[in-house]
Computed example of a mutant assay.
Amino acid sequence: MILALDVGLSNTGYCVFENGKPQEWGVCTTSPVKKKTVRVADDRADRSASLARQIRAVVEKHGVTGIVGELPSGGAQSAKAMGDMTQAVGIVAATAALLGIPAEWCTPTDVKKAATGKASASKEEIADAMAKKYGLEKVVKHTKESKKTGKRSRLLTYGGIAFGNFEHIADAMAAYNALAGGILVTLAG
């Protein structure tokens, strides 16, 4: 079994694959504490531990023997976002090492190309491609017209999962596809 990941501190999308077929998918989440009495450093340590425990639980549940994933490579909108990305990468890499599981990584560009064939793919294009590949229905619901803007917004779901979560799952699925020809996926599934 291979665990495919889209690594992030707040949202880490995952998909467990066996012989090229998704078995389970979801999103590991952590949220900062809003209390002013909790130090930022303590909160970040708690979030790190929570993410590591969630990943370990998926690994143990499925008997995962390898991890593949998309690692953020920079380009964050702020120093805080860059710190969150760096922290998440460290958590995932350390968790894999402590569990004795080999890992192989790809870039966000590799993920986009694997999903859509182009390096400039949008999150929705990646989600559409992975939903189509793995047989998940895309549902678009239009909301009422906004009084302020006069425009209607869309609510997207993929296989019953809201786009906000599915985009992370789709990136994990696409990371698996990007690394499907690699040694780890070839050997472990």
Rank of each mutant, 00 (worst) to 15 (best):
T29M: 12
L5I: 09
K151Q: 14
I161L: 01
E104Y: 06
F166E: 07
C28K: 01
P108C: 02
C28I: 14
E60T: 08
E104G: 06
E18I: 06
K151R: 13
T116N: 03
T12K: 07
A96R: 03
R53G: 09
F166H: 00
D46V: 09
E18G: 14
E167Y: 00
L5G: 00
A41R: 09
K112W: 10
L51F: 09
E24P: 05
A76S: 15
A88N: 10
K141Y: 04
G181Y: 07
Y158D: 06
S78Y: 05
S120L: 10
V27P: 06
K132S: 12
N177E: 14
A174R: 14
A180E: 12
A52N: 09
G181V: 07
K118N: 06
F163C: 01
A170P: 03
Q23F: 00
T109I: 14
A97L: 08
C28H: 13
A162T: 00
G13S: 02
T107L: 08
A41V: 14
G159L: 02
R39H: 09
K141M: 13
A127N: 06
T186C: 01
G75M: 03
S146G: 12
A175M: 06
A178T: 11
V40G: 02
T37E: 14
I67V: 07
N11T: 10
A103S: 14
T157I: 10
K36F: 13
D171C: 03
T12M: 02
I126P: 00
K36W: 13
K80P: 00
G90M: 01
Q77D: 13
T65I: 11
T186E: 11
S50V: 04
I126M: 08
T157A: 13
D84V: 03
E24T: 06
A127S: 15
A131I: 04
E24W: 05
E70W: 01
T116I: 05
G159C: 02
D6A: 05
F163G: 11
L156F: 15
I101A: 05
I169V: 14
I183L: 13
S73V: 14
A115R: 05
N19C: 11
L9Q: 11
V64S: 02
S31K: 15
K80H: 13
R53T: 09
R39P: 06
K34M: 13
G90E: 10
P22G: 07
L155N: 14
F163N: 10
A94H: 08
A57N: 11
Y134K: 09
G26L: 02
V7F: 04
G135F: 07
V140Y: 04
V33P: 03
N165V: 01
V92H: 03
D42Y: 01
N165G: 12
V33R: 13
Q77W: 09
T65W: 01
A131G: 14
P102Y: 09
K35I: 10
G164F: 06
V111A: 00
T109W: 11
G75F: 07
A127T: 07
A49C: 07
A180I: 07
I126Y: 10
N11F: 13
R56Y: 07
S146N: 11
P108D: 04
G160D: 03
L136E: 11
A103E: 12
I55H: 03
P32C: 06
L3Y: 02
A41Y: 02
A81F: 01
R47T: 12
S73L: 14
H168F: 08
M173G: 02
L136T: 04
E104L: 11
